[in-house]
Design a protein around this nucleic acid. Structure first.
Length: 171
DNA sequence: TCGACGATTGCC
DNA sequence: GCAATCGTCGAG
């Protein structure tokens, strides 16, 4: 079995996020067909101090899952139209998540979820046990070049956090 | 209850 | 450049 285990996601988000580049996102559709995509672009959102992180506003019904242990799926709707796919990281009570921004073939977090038919119903599912979405090994870490940049669309996050190089792109 | 706003996208 | 479109959250 190539599925990444709980331990992979139980680390700090700044380790997990770049570690997800080159890994394989696996989606099993309702008709049983399995599709696999290399992960090419991610962003890290780290804790209540990170003003770009939804958890900066504390524990709410929406952010609740980020306070659980790594490996859970955090999904939310943005601009009334697009579902954003995130993976919770680290141990319990440290709200962190990785936004999956791009996979091979689809660039853009909204287009990605639309094409893979991922929506609110995935909220709270666990990548260790889900029968329809998980992550597997992919490229070897030494085969990958990683570029870092500031995160997209978070100008409101204040000078410190909007400039953090927490977007990771493969290639 | 109400209003403001957003980790985006695609069209003008 | 800007509208689409609606769940979430804090204020009233």
């Amino acid at each position: 079995m190539n599925r990444l285990t709980r331990d992979f996601f139980m680390r700090d988000v700044l380790e997990v996020a770049p570690g997800l580049l080159g890994k394989t996102l696996v989606r099993k559709q309702e008709n049983g067909i399995i599709k696999k995509y290399l992960i090419t672009e991610v962003e890290a959102y780290k804790g209540e101090k990170d003003l770009a992180c939804h958890a900066s506003k504390g524990r709410t019904p929406r952010t609740e899952i980020m306070y659980h242990e790594g490996g859970h799926i955090y999904i939310y709707l943005i601009y009334g139209m697009y579902w954003m796919l995130n993976f919770v990281t680290a141990i319990k009570d440290t709200p962190q998540a990785v936004l999956i921004r791009g996979i091979e073939g689809y660039n853009g977090p909204g287009k990605l979820t639309r094409n893979l038919f991922i929506d609110k119903s995935f909220y709270g599912e666990n990548l260790n046990s889900s029968g329809r979405l998980w992550v597997e090994k992919g490229l070897k870490q030494n085969e990958i070049k990683i570029k870092t940049t500031p995160r997209i669309g978070i100008d409101y996050a204040g000078e410190i956090y909007k400039n953090k190089l927490w977007r990771f792109v493969m290639g």
